[in-house]
């Protein structure tokens, strides 16, 4: 059972905006699904998923990069060849 507070906290951690008006709905739905997931907790082993293949590596060789124009072509905002983002400080 998760509370509205849990959902708010996780939504913040995921940085995915949820309106106050949506909290009740998300809480109800997530509760239902997480309750359904609870069956997993009845498993007592913590077995790792076995992966047969390993050491898939590439040689240290330089391949062509995109041009600055191509790199920036989908950016919302740019300045002097940089991507422009909001302040973080």
């Amino acid at each position: 059972m998760v509370t509205a507070e849990d959902v708010r906290k996780v939504a913040k951690l995921a940085d995915v905006g949820i309106d106050d008006s949506e909290i009740a709905e998300f809480t109800r739905q997530c509760s239902g699904v997480l309750e359904y997931f609870e069956i997993l907790d009845t498993l007592d082993q913590n077995q790792q998923l076995y992966r047969e293949r390993y050491n898939i590596l590439r040689e240290d060789e330089v391949t062509p990069s995109l041009s600055q124009e191509e790199s920036l072509q989908n950016a919302g905002q740019t300045e002097k060849g940089f991507f422009k983002a909001p302040r973080v400080m």
Binding site: T63, L66, Q68, G81
Partner: peptide
């Protein structure tokens, strides 16, 4: 080098 010139789909 100029910014964003040593970049490709992976490292972008």
């Amino acid at each position: 080098n100029e910014p964003n010139t040593h970049t490709c789909p992976v490292c972008l």
